[in-house]
Design a protein around this nucleic acid. Sequence first.
DNA 1: GTCTATAAAGCGATAGAC
DNA 2: GTCTATCGCTTTATAGAC
Lengths: 193, 193
Amino acid sequence: MRTQHEVGTRERIVQTTSRLMQRQGYEATGLKQISQEAQATLGSVYHFFPGGKRELAVEAVRHGDREFAEFLRTAFDQEDDPAVAIVTCTRDLANGLRESAWLDGCPVTTTALESAGREPEIQQAAEDAYENWRSLVRNKLRHSGFTDDTAHDLAHSVINMLEGAELSAQVSQSVTPLEIAGKHLARLINSYR
Amino acid sequence: MRTQHEVGTRERIVQTTSRLMQRQGYEATGLKQISQEAQATLGSVYHFFPGGKRELAVEAVRHGDREFAEFLRTAFDQEDDPAVAIVTCTRDLANGLRESAWLDGCPVTTTALESAGREPEIQQAAEDAYENWRSLVRNKLRHSGFTDDTAHDLAHSVINMLEGAELSAQVSQSVTPLEIAGKHLARLINSYR
DNA sequence: GTCTATAAAGCGATAGAC
DNA sequence: GTCTATCGCTTTATAGAC
């Protein structure tokens, strides 16, 4: 039995947009480039997304949200200790960055920053993504015995440190920021036990 | 005696570009908007910056570099304890964000992410900025008695957490991420004493 | 140094045949 | 659903007068 089936045009457009905006941002990604790389025509793009580029960006950010959430869930499912799981995340993120020639950073952040204060719907989708990721970390910590307040605060700093370290790693083309982030986040988490 | 003197056209263009790219990013900021808000003509912009938008972005990132470095220096000069000084930084950043209606985030990050892997000169200017800020934190910690290795690692995480928390605060329009970042960074620093 | 005019190209978006 | 053609506008950059 194959769960994998042919990917429809709509999904191909969303995936392509997400990847392009991850690498280039919202403003630098054109609909022409999207339609070409997704092997769809401009007419198809506007057929599925009558709201144009803005609507497409919202879907792309939601796609990135699901993508990174799946990454976190996998790490948390494979390791009981949240501190150890976070270190695994930093290592996997570093590997992914290096293997993509430092091109594939956070699939949401560049578009989020470009749209902050200018494109409310895109900004909201990005805020939803961050909140979703924080809630995954928060639940992992709560199930490991941390209090609600501690888990809430740690979830914020885990996601924020991962964001900052990945950004820094990408700009400096070095895994060092992510390695240090893993070490310090584990230390911070363990200081609350 | 007035140290303040009339600001020349060149400096006015750089300041305007820095502020616009801080709020809108590199791609969304046009040379026409820059010349209008800087009260300069397009001819003047190309007179001072023959390299066009790319050259202007490099200067804008360097301007943001000096700006945030000055912010850090002021905080470090006014408080002996580095952990307390960092908490002050998070509070000041939160106030600045709120007072600007969540528009003025890091003056470098949006442009840095947009140019990563695509505009080497701008990316290099951004990397120089982050390294400069880290070195200011590192020196503060070293002069407070931390070992070189500890200060080096903590400087990375301080800057990365500030970056991630400011980004998160801007997108969510809430000071909470920065407040938690201050608390956790102080705890992390103090755990090495 | 400052200014205007304009070139050359690309953008998002739309229309309408198929 | 897919495709092509095109509109209207904006962009970066340049030319050349003053």
